[in-house]
Structure formats: structure tokens, C-alpha cells
């Protein structure tokens, strides 16, 4: 069964078309990198996948159901770009709050893995940007999701912390979690070594290829990206 199945997906905000006829099929257990410049439609796509918003037209199925259904939402967790943590609370209090909303007993392992356990009882407002991002990723993993969606999770992270986050994501993916990893950094995608790469441009899915084939055909993600961007510009 597919983890995410989008058929002829459109999303319009008034006159602005954010997504144009997007078709995507992501299998369970896949690690998919979603790449594209700002305004390409990748964040809109994951908003629909997480049930935050609904498509204007087309159909979306997540884990075989409607993504806005609370039972489906319970199986999907997200790391928003800004982290999504309450500043005036400690990391532990944030974890308890979200765990209660999701109705799960939080998994302690991600906090060890990302070395968040050292500052679990510190207020988020007293943490650096990098520490907050690690905490947000650990929190999303602690909710035991079947699908993990990360929206540019390594912004503000130093190279070591970025590597730690990528390793943690890969580890959970290897144990069966489907991962949608949104980024606009081609080098980060190479570091991630996903199963597939989706490139969004101007609201369209411009490329959908396995990572290995993409690397063998283009040599690098950057070259693949340039080639696709040139094709779209030519159209």
C-alpha cells in the first residue's frame, strides 16, 4: 500500500496557483527528498500531505485514508520550518503536550540519538537555533510516526548537527518510517542519499527519479536540478 498517493493535485490561493496537476506515489518505507526553490510548491504539497490544508482539486490519500482524518494525522508527524515548539516551555513540557495531543507514549530514543536529553528541562527560549531544531526533530520522531515530514529541518544547523539529524532520519527510515524530506539545498540532498528525489518547479513536479539513477545520469543533484530548470524555462 502507498504511503502517499496524490492524483492530479491542484492548489490555488485566489489567482495564485501553488500546485498544478501533481501526481506522486510514495511507497511505505521510502525516503524521499523534495527539492525546489522558494515558491515552487513543495511546502504546499507537504501541507496537503499533513492535512493542514486541502487541495483545490484532485485526490490525496495518505496511508490509504483522508489526511485530514484525525486517525491518519495521528500516524504522521511533522517538523515545521520554524520548529513548532513553545518558547516559554521546556523541551520536556513540549514533548508531553504533543504526546498528549497525539495520544502516544513518547519514544525516548530520539532524544538520546540527537543528544537532546542533555537539555530536556531547559526552556526552549534559552536554547540556540541549532538546539531547537534538534529538539523539534527528536520530538517529531518521539511521536512514533509512520510518516515523518521534515520541512527544511537543517536550517540554522552547523555541519555536525546537520549530519546528526540526517543520520537519525536515515536510522528511523531503515526501521520502516516513511520520510518526506523537504530541502532547497542540493548538497544536503546528496548527503541524505534518499531513495528518490522529487524536484518541484513553478507548482509542477518537474522530476521524479530514484537517487541512484539521477546521480548516474547527471553526476550530481545540482546538475540534475539545472537540467530540469532549463527544461522548464524552455517550455
Amino acid at each position: 500500500m502507498s504511503a502517499v498517493q496524490a492524483t492530479n493535485l491542484w492548489k490555488e490561493y485566489g489567482r495564485v496557483v501553488a500546485l498544478r496537476s501533481v501526481n506522486v506515489d510514495i511507497d511505505r518505507g521510502e525516503l524521499v527528498a523534495i527539492l525546489g526553490p522558494n515558491g515552487a510548491g513543495k511546502s504546499t504539497f507537504i501541507k496537503i500531505v499533513c492535512g493542514v490544508t486541502r487541495p483545490t482539486r484532485g485526490e490525496i490519500r495518505v496511508l490509504g485514508g483522508d489526511p485530514s482524518d484525525p486517525d491518519i494525522k495521528r500516524r504522521v508527524s511533522i517538523v515545521p520550518q520554524q520548529g513548532g515548539l513553545y518558547l516559554e516551555q521546556t523541551v520536556r513540557e513540549n514533548v508531553r503536550f504533543y504526546a498528549e495531543l497525539y495520544g502516544v507514549e513518547p519514544d525516548e530514543e530520539p532524544f538520546e540519538l540527537l543528544e537532546v536529553h542533555e537539555y530536556m528541562d531547559r526552556r526552549v527560549e534559552h536554547l540556540s537555533g541549532g538546539m531547537r531544531k534538534r529538539a523539534a526533530v527528536a520530538l517529531a520522531l518521539a511521536l512514533r510516526p509512520e510518516i515523518l515530514v521534515l520541512d527544511e529541518p537543517t536550517n540554522e544547523l552547523d555541519p555536525t548537527a546537520r549530519q546528526d539529524v540526517i543520520e537519525a532520519v536515515r536510522e528511523y527510515n531503515e526501521s520502516g518510517t516513511t520520510v518526506l524530506y523537504v530541502s532547497h539545498d542540493v548538497h544536503e540532498v546528496e548527503q541524505l542519499e534518499p531513495d528518490r528525489v522529487l524536484i518541484f518547479l513553478e507548482g509542477r513536479k518537474a522530476l521524479d527519479e530514484p537517487f541512484d539513477r539521477l546521480m548516474s545520469e547527471h553526476g550530481s543533484v545540482l546538475d540534475a536540478y539545472r537540467s530540469v530548470a532549463a527544461q522548464v524555462a524552455g517550455e
Binding site: 499533513c50 492535512g51 484525525p70 515545521p80 513548532g84 504533543y98 495531543l101
Partner: peptide, 15 residues
């Protein structure tokens, strides 16, 4: 909204 908490709440299994 600015902290991304609203996003996380809309994605959470609550109405």
C-alpha cells in the same frame, strides 16, 4: 503562527 506552533497544531490529530 510565527513559531510554527499553529502549523504543528493544524497537523496534529485535533480539530
Amino acid at each position: 503562527i510565527e513559531l510554527g506552533v499553529a502549523y504543528a497544531l493544524f497537523a496534529a490529530p485535533i480539530r
